[in-house]
Design a protein around this nucleic acid. Structure first.
Lengths: 201, 201, 201, 201
DNA sequence: ACGTAAACGAGACGGTACGTCCGGTCTTATA
DNA sequence: TATAAGACCGGACGTACCGTCTCGTTTACGT
């Protein structure tokens, strides 16, 4: 059995950590994920390569931490509107999400992470656990409250319900099969809530 | 202006073409997409590297052709059942699709292509145009017929309707957030057809 | 047993070979042997690192070939004077040798090779076989003729006799314990020929 | 102007000093000089790297001190036999020297030091001053007495005379051009004392 | 049927990045 | 304040592939 002495996290340089995150995020935006290199990150961060390899196993892991650090700094706690109008609330959040996914600074690293996750099951587990699921949770929580209020049928699995909305949304974004417009997200919410069989109001 | 004489497709070696496809497909299954290399393909195929670079611009393009060649050989034309029972038909096809996506030989190259597409807009256009859309078309056609038969509300965009089903399905598979079981696809179809608000039967 | 396909020497780039030699020789003069790097040679030669690793196992081997190529271009065949006066002839050649060893362009790579040879038995074998021994041979040949002419005692091993002269010479140069002056080499020749016990003239 | 406070030698850890010497000597025997690393020495000695850098400027300096400390512990004062028979005495000492140079524990660090000295003039000065010259002095002293006794011609520079014997000896050892046998050293002494021109007795 | 031009296998080439090792400097906590 | 420990920036190691570029050698036409 191989035993590698883990590095002493207490002595870690916070300055380097931040510089690596900044470099990774800016570079992924400039050159894309697969032209992103550890050497490039180290160079722009003014850091030895070993300092990256000491703390992260791969560029995907660096990017994930970089993105997470930014995200945590940004939202601290998720705001979940509950006006009583489920459709309106979902559209509101989904429009905001669409805006975010249309922002280059957000899009580049997030797409890179999605690619890395699709590629590798290990990364996928980290990515879904730390970014995807917390993002989905906002929807799940709102849907659960709607279910308790009788707005949603009792037997429905709210987690799958959330996927019903976010699956098409994510797919469209990831494969670039269309724009993430307000019209699209509104249609999405209405269709999912009412079902295909119902006559349109 | 640079003018490069294009290669003479007439003189192309079919033997090499097949060998390259076989090598690419088997290798992507063994080592994954980003450890797949042109050199590796050439080596296994018993082919010069230049023969690959002459006919394809990237490993993604090779893989796409390889996969397409196989797919065309397999289904030539898609069978789309129409028993009159929309839900049953959708579940039938979706179960078959789930079976396919659970097959390693299919999964490995398809995932590789999805990854390549998510990464690069050019590849995405090819991938969606040649593989995704044709696959979706089966569902769209059936949904359109259902709409004509009045089973689906008139105003519904059947293309988006297809996404409603396939988006969650693809997302679950791509990010490995869950198994593609028959139960899942059945639930998916029912929820999409009936909507979240409808009372469960 | 490991079998690595050797590179095809027929396709070798003569241009690269020369550039590598020139770079190695100039760099060793500028930075010294242990700051000489493969990367540095490749960089100055305008050559990929792999082109060096493909043809040589180490920087010592590169340097040896570089030096040998130069040496062969220079002397082709060694001239060995034979005026009938052994002492005079030896002094003549040894003075020329001293001049050579006092030349920076010759000294730098030769010292580097001597260092590499002292360090590693494999290199030593190559170095002595290809450079040292041919250099010594000039002296051995002249000594042998002197022995046939009766100027040197019959039982003397002329190879060891050559070492008697060159050993002190080389040692002084290698360890920098003194200058290689004409006076020194003259004294050396006289002492070796006459022995310590003989009365000085 | 940079002023670095020199370390306080009084507080120096003797335990560490010894451990570093032991580690350096054993490691140089195991891996050779150029795979000898400061980190390796520190690791085996159970010592921080800084403790080495604080007291020595280079691995050559460490090795030199390590070797000198051992040598001083061993011979304290050099024994120089004087039986009245110069040739016999020289052969006796040279045979002992040959035995020493054939010992792995002596050979490895000594060769390492010779290599370092050949490479760098600074090291060479230290090496010759502290190890080479004291070793040669034994011969010089004996030769001087022989000269006073009339056994050696009056005009001979005994320092150069010593080189006449030790130069070929060292050269043969350093370049591994032959074994250091008793026969070799005996021949060497006889030839140097009697000269090449003399008829063999 | 034959000569020739293109595709082919092979692989050397100039490069870029990999992940590792070590140099020499620095910081932190013990003793 | 010297030490053990080890993080840090930097730079070279030797390897793997990239995409381009010759090399002969098939191979399939156009004469």
């Amino acid at each position: 059995m191989v035993h590698v002495t883990p590095p002493d996290a207490g002595r870690r340089s916070e300055r380097s950590r931040r510089a690596i995150f900044d470099a990774a995020l800016s570079l992924v935006g400039e050159v894309g994920y697969d032209k992103l290199t550890i050497e490039g990150i180290a160079g722009r961060a003014g850091v030895g390569k070993q300092t990256i390899y000491r703390w992260w196993p791969s560029k995907a892991a660096v990017l994930l931490d970089a993105f997470t650090a930014d995200a945590e700094a940004a939202d601290h706690e998720q705001a979940l509107p509950d006006t009583g109008d489920l459709a309106a609330d979902l559209k509101f959040v989904l429009r905001a999400t669409a805006d975010e996914f249309n922002t280059p600074e957000f899009q580049a690293p997030y797409r890179a992470l999605a690619v890395a996750a699709a590629n590798d099951a290990k990364v996928a587990a980290e990515f879904t656990g730390r970014l995807l699921e917390p993002g989905i949770k906002v929807y799940v929580d709102r849907l659960r409250r709607a279910q308790q209020a009788g707005e949603i049928a009792a037997g429905v699995d709210v987690r799958i319900a959330a996927d019903l909305i976010l699956g098409p949304f994510t797919q469209r974004w990831l494969m670039r099969t269309g724009e993430l417009t307000y019209a699209f997200v509104d249609t999405l919410v209405d269709l999912v809530l009412d079902g295909l069989r119902n006559p349109r109001p």
